[in-house]
């Protein structure tokens, strides 16, 4: 028997070594029939469909999309970017929650986060710039949709959902603005709250409800914190789900122009 080199022995050992694992009951219980993780992937129309169908995240997409819609110059990927930024903000936001108390300790917590937590400054920066970017990208997405006339029948209502999402994005950003509890935060929010107090009949009540008092205090901080980390994310996820669902139900991307 010929002696195998080390390299050949490795190669021989690696051959089919994944098969028993892939074929095991445990693996087949995880991956659905047809999943590339069961049988391996070879490029065929059938497998291209399976990639999309057998993954819960990719399943947001249909198996096939209009050819003109995949051009980057058509959508600029702005809707997808909005969603992606939302995910980034959720992850970094959860991370930041570990180091933050919405009390009079808030400012000290931010300082400690920036100076004595590993990557604290980076993650905080990502959260803040990401939030600004998201407002910008959502707004650009809306403009893109307008210029393509994509709000027209049958997509009228999805445009309405989109406008609600834009406002929810603004509310999310605005409630987050107060949380660092520095001079920039408190006075920006005071200005914003004063604008809300110009509402005709209920102006004073709205401001009082928003601030949990007559001016921005730590009670306001707690209120904005809960709105920021729980209430608005909860609402926006519901509207996002409707938005994505309607995109598909209304026939995918609009156009071509």
């Amino acid at each position: 028997m010929a002696k195998l080199t080390l390299r050949e022995r490795f190669k021989k050992g690696a051959e089919g070594s994944g098969d028993s694992l892939r074929g095991s009951k445990f693996a087949t219980s995880i991956f659905r029939p047809g999943s590339p993780f069961r049988k391996g992937y070879s490029d065929s129309p059938r497998n291209r469909s399976y990639v999309v169908m057998n993954n819960v995240l990719y399943h947001l997409h249909p198996v096939k999309v209009k050819r003109h819609g995949v051009r980057l110059s058509y959508t600029l990927c702005l809707g997808g970017m909005s969603f992606f930024l939302f995910i980034v903000l959720t992850i970094t936001g959860i991370w930041l929650m570990f180091y933050f108390r919405p009390t009079e300790m808030a400012y000290a917590d931010i300082q400690a986060l920036q100076t004595s937590v590993a990557f604290g400054s980076l993650v905080r920066n990502m959260h803040r710039w990401g939030a600004h970017l998201m407002v910008l990208v959502v707004f650009l997405h809306m403009s893109r949709v307008f210029y393509h006339g994509a709000y027209k029948a049958p997509r009228e209502f999805n445009w309405v959902i989109g406008v609600i999402l834009l406002f929810l994005t603004l509310f999310l950003s605005f409630t987050g603005y107060l949380l660092p509890w520095d001079q920039l935060a408190i006075w920006a929010v005071t200005v914003g709250g004063n604008m809300a107090s110009y509402t005709p009949v209920f102006g004073a009540q709205i401001k009082f409800g928003l601030f949990a008092g007559l001016e921005a205090t730590t009670a306001t901080l707690l209120r904005f914190y809960v709105l920021h980390v729980l209430f608005f994310p909860f609402i926006i996820v519901i509207f996002m789900a409707i938005h994505f669902w309607r995109v598909r139900k209304d026939g995918g991307i609009s156009g071509p122009l």
């Binding site: 990639v51 999309v65 997808g80």
Partner: peptide, 14 residues
């Protein structure tokens, strides 16, 4: 309509 497979034509740019 002229359609293409989501994988890879949409998911890769995405």
């Amino acid at each position: 309509v002229d359609k293409v497979n989501t994988w890879p034509h949409l998911m890769l740019p995405e």
